[in-house]
């Protein structure tokens, strides 16, 4: 079984990348992968409270994130420093753990595969 780390560095509505990355993560989990997700830089905006994809007639990214545990994706991390810099009003229900740089370094080193996805 491979250990996957998906690094999400993009904001939720600026492009369709994040959704495509999360779909990939769900497929990896469905194929018995051990999946972790790390949000960094503008990726932390995916945790902002009160999102409404409806306003743009698309899916609400926070809602997609909230469904990850049902795909057995529960190693969910967010870069503490990226959060702090942006002053994000984080939705605590999403269950992401804020981690420092050394912890992120360990996450990368303990993965077999890192999917960055920045197009």
């Amino acid at each position: 079984m491979k250990r996957y780390l998906f690094i999400v560095s993009r904001s939720p509505y600026g492009s369709s990348v994040v959704l495509e990355q999360l779909e990939t993560a769900m497929v990896a989990a469905a194929f018995d992968g051990d999946v972790a997700i790390l949000l960094r830089d503008d990726g932390v905006w995916n945790l902002q409270q009160h999102q409404s994809g409806d306003a743009l007639e698309r899916q609400t990214l926070a809602k997609v994130l909230s469904g990850l545990p049902s795909y057995e994706i529960d190693r969910l991390y967010v870069c503490a420093s990226s959060l702090q810099m942006r002053n994000v009003a984080i939705d605590q229900h999403l269950g992401f753990e804020a981690v420092d740089y050394p912890a992120q370094q360990a996450l990368i080193r303990n993965s077999d595969v890192v999917i960055g996805g920045q197009p």
């Binding site: 560095s9 077999d112 890192v114 960055g116 920045q118």
Partner: peptide, 9 residues
């Protein structure tokens, strides 16, 4: 080396 990580932004 493993893993191989790409950084664009």
């Amino acid at each position: 080396h493993s893993p191989i990580v790409s950084w664009k932004d």
